[in-house]
Every structure is written in C-alpha cells, then in structure tokens.
Design a protein around this nucleic acid. Structure first.
Ligand SMILES: [Mn+2]
Ligand SMILES: [Mn+2]
Ligand SMILES: [Zn+2]
Ligand SMILES: [Zn+2]
Lengths: 135, 135
DNA sequence: TTATTAAAGGATAAATATTATTTTTTATAT
DNA sequence: ATATAAAAAATAATATTTATCCTTTAATAA
C-alpha cells in the first residue's frame, strides 16, 4: 500500500482523500476506465460527484500524474505515469496489459526517412489474452 | 476522382449521394474527424443531418469500409480502409500522415515471449510535422 | 419503365458524456 | 489556530452520440 501524498504534491496536486483513493485504485488495477473508476470510488465515498472524477482525471493528466491510453473499439483507460511502454488489449474481456517493447530502431528509421520529429510513441496491440484463449 | 459506387456496394452499403460524398472527402483528405466531415458535407448537402454523418460513419465502420484512428490528446479521425499502416500525428497542427512500418519482428517477439495472440496493431507516433518545424 | 420494398435521409428527441458554476468544505502554509 | 487558495459536492449547462418517426430513395424485379 503505497502512500501517494508526496507524489501528488510533486505534481502540484493537493493530496485529498479522493485523490489518494484514485491513485490507489490506479495502482491496484493498473488501467481503469472513467466509469469503472467512478464505481470503485462510490464504494469509498458514497457521496462523491462524477464531476470530481472528471476534474481530477483532467488535472492529473495536465500535471502528468497519470496518462490516458486510447484503445481501439473501446473506452480509454488511465494509468499512473511510468516509463513509456506499450499495451496489449484483449478484444474479448477488454483487459489491458503492459508490455515493454523497444521502438528505438523504428524511430531511427523514420527519423532518417522523413523529417517528422517524433516525441512520443503509442502502440496498442489488439488480440486475445491468455485467459480468453482458454474459455 | 474515383467512383465509389461499387466499392460501397461490395461493403453492403447502398451508394447514396451522401455516402459517395463522404467517400470522396475521405479519399481527398486522407483522415478526417467527425466535425470536419460534417462541415465539408454541409457545403455539398445544405440540409444534411448530423445524425446522417454518425449513422454512416458507424455503418461504414461495421462494414469495414472505413477505419477509426484514435489519436492521443486529440479527436479520432477516419480513413478509407486500406492495407494496415501506422500514423504520424502532429501535435501542433493535428495533421495525420500515413507511414508504413514493418512491425512483424515486434509481433514475433511478443508471440514468443507471451501467450497473447495479436490480431492487429495500432501505432501512432506523435511529434512535429515538417511544416510545423519551419514556422 | 413502373412498381415494390427495404434501407437511408432529415428532423428532432432522447440518452450519454463531459464541462461549468456555485456554494461548502478542506489541505496547506503561516 | 488562522487564513486562503484549492478541491469537493451539487447541480446546471454543453457537447457528443444515439434513437425515433416520418419521408424519400436506391436497388430489384416485374
Ligand atoms: Mn500501461
Ligand atoms: Mn492512415
Ligand atoms: Zn481477455
Ligand atoms: Zn504540423
């Protein structure tokens, strides 16, 4: 159980109980959609407003405390900011897994071939996760 | 000026003037957002309904006549279905360019390392396009 | 051609999703 | 402890997307 008080403050975000709970859920679940996060938060703060979720998600994004991952044919999920990495998205159960892939060779090739200056990469590989292959 | 009548029919879509115009704009512009497409279409069909845009985009997606591309920190854009490829997204002018990158080696590595079955890839490289580097 | 019909378009309502506003509460610094 | 700027809650307002209903039309077959 990590304490996110200082990490929030380092991102210029006041460490409110709601925000600590959001950070906690993101840490535990890894990747969460807005509506899932709201449901989880209602369990802890029965009177929490959906607007509080949205305001916090947007502020946390602006201050790079979290990142948004856009998934094809699905809702966006959010995660605590960490080292750049790619994602595996299950088309059946919609689970999202982290995967570290070295894309530097690809970036190098493009940088040589074109004059586009790449600042960040976003790779989502869709398919069927291990669990869903069994069922 | 390509005639999309038969291509639409091959995708089980009636070739209406509105759909032919949508196909035409997608062909000319390459990648268009919903709202841009609506603005373009209003020029050709002054009484077109926004619902017609949404219904057609959704039907065309279901029938694989077009594809959706989700762009980080930006609205989705749509394009005519073509061979799988990746995208360069300019963070300044929001232009989206096509780029063909061979991701097979990456897929192979993941297939060996994990038991996730990849069925499609989605790579968006964000940065600054050539034009925006000049200004 | 003309007739038939299922599908599509237009108008608009309804449902979702997101953001803004106002008041109350609270985290943080003094 | 106090002051204060920021955050939360409640709720209104927008924005986005989908559904409905009626009219029009593309596709098909007499
Ligand atoms: Mn991740
Ligand atoms: Mn493309
Ligand atoms: Zn799965
Ligand atoms: Zn640009």
């Amino acid at each position: 159980m990590i304490n996110y008080t200082n990490i929030l403050r380092e991102h210029n975000l006041k460490a409110t109980p709601q925000r600590l709970a959001i950070a906690d859920e993101l840490y535990k679940k890894g990747h969460i959609s807005i509506e899932s996060l709201y449901e989880l938060m209602v369990n802890k703060f029965s009177s929490i407003s959906l607007a509080t979720i949205y305001k916090n998600i947007n502020l946390m994004l602006e201050n790079s405390f979290i990142q948004e991952i856009k998934i094809p044919y699905s809702k966006s999920v959010y995660e605590l900011t960490q080292a750049p990495h790619s994602h595996l998205a299950c088309e059946k159960c919609f689970a999202v897994e982290d995967i570290t892939i070295d894309l530097n060779s690809i970036i190098d090739i493009i940088t040589k071939e074109s004059s586009f200056k790449i600042t960040s990469t976003n790779l989502v590989l869709s398919g069927i996760c291990e669990n869903c292959q069994l069922g």
